[in-house]
Amino acid sequence: MPREITYREALREGLDEELAHDDNVVIIGEEVAEYNGAYKVTEGLWNKWGDKRVIDAPISEAGFIGMGIGASMLGVRPVMELMFYSFAYVAFDQMMNNAATCRYMSGGLINVPIVVRGPANGGTNVGATHSHTPENIFANMPGLKVVSPSDAHDVKGLIKSSIRDNDPVYFMESTVLYGMSGEVPSNDELDDGELIVPIGKAKVKREGADISLIAHGRAVVTSLAAADILADKYNINAEVLDLRSIRPLDEQAIMESVRKTHRAIYVEENKPFCGIGAQVSSMIMEQAFDDLDAPVLRITSADAPAFYSPAIEKLQLPAPEEIVERALTIC
């Protein structure tokens, strides 16, 4: 019987293993230590590792993220938690200017091995300020890596490779996914003795021949539900491709899928304007134009700030029914 744990537990396991793997790994963020994490991702880690390795920061994102960037230049490997990725905007200068460009402006003399992680999702009834999805904003900046795992297996494997990566990795999770369980092999079941998922590799979550649903983050879960409906009700066999990593991007996996199915929809909880789907659909158009039997479609969050009222907010986000409806227009 394969082991099943939640996304939250898997993420915590990954953090715990990296604290053990490298003495220079430090977890810093608001409420990550004594409070055990606002979303309990870091629960128990302060008890286990103590004050030096797991540190509560004041509410001071520009200060502590910038501090982490400075420390990383010296060889500390900080894993910074943003309670919400929406708070990245408070630390924008540090995250965009200092983390992303120090290497370039020093002619390669410096690198910034920092991870900034936290939930980057809407749909939780908390209003617009706490519902931002900034993966496209950060992926726009060369020098940064953006990762967005959709299941328990990948969140563990990717947090470990992100911490070991020698460039800044912005690791975007989802509070909605934290409680979802998935199969995560224990280390003794693995040949290498640990679970590592490389950054920059997409994963086919469901094989199909009729249409590619390409997605990242929680939209992968939504796409899988849509694929079930398409198969059950319409005999349409959708392939679901989980990008997992947005920058670097597994372009090859995208094109392979599109060349097989000849139809594609990009699904994301991001906003449409210059979203990930805009980038991916442009690449498909340029590289697989002759393979397409229909225009590439994009399904995103509604192009409005997050609505507070849960009755309406859920309508702003991609839903399986919307994906099905749009898929039927091109299948």
Partner: peptide, 11 residues
């Protein structure tokens, strides 16, 4: 640069 300097001291 002031948070970065603080980070160097942290290191």
């Amino acid at each position: 640069q002031t948070p970065l300097g603080t980070g160097l001291a942290f290191g």
